[in-house]
Amino acid sequence: MILEIYRVIFINPWPYWAGGIIIGLLVPLLYYYYNTALGVSTGYGNLVKILLPAGKLKWIKEKYPDPWNWRVYFIAGIILGGFIASALSGNAGFTFDMGRFTTLVGWPAIAGAIYFFSGGLLLGLGARIAGGCTSGHSIHGIANLHISSILATIFFLVGGIIAANLVQAVLMGGIW
């Protein structure tokens, strides 16, 4: 019985609604406890100020007076949560595995590293110009029926569909 419960929570893939409900509940919970809007990408500015010599840049100076605020702890928590999930499912440890990218593209690791770095560069730049990411715009914003977030999410999806289909067509053996 206990083994079965463990398996359902920590080993088997979750049904989509179980994850969706908990993620969705974070929106009202963060307001209730901390009067704070759910969002992740703004916290990358904290990391810029902590890790890079950027303190003189006006935007960083004005927007991040204290880079060691709750956003860094939220980021650390998400990393920890991913670690706990993979450790309890018996998959902890470093891996180059990235699903279809590693099985179908077959690039040397250095090329893969540059590829994912480029994707990250676009994510970081785009999130700041758009004013948010999947959590801040798509989940928090749409849950609060903000038109700006609905529009941003449409453009997130358009970009994602274009890029993923190009990757599929060019690197993964043709159109799906």
């Binding site: 990250g120 700041r128 999410t153």
Partner: peptide
Amino acid sequence: GAGIFGLGWGISGA
């Protein structure tokens, strides 16, 4: 910016 973000999303899968 949202479109740029989307391209990054589709490239990195994250």
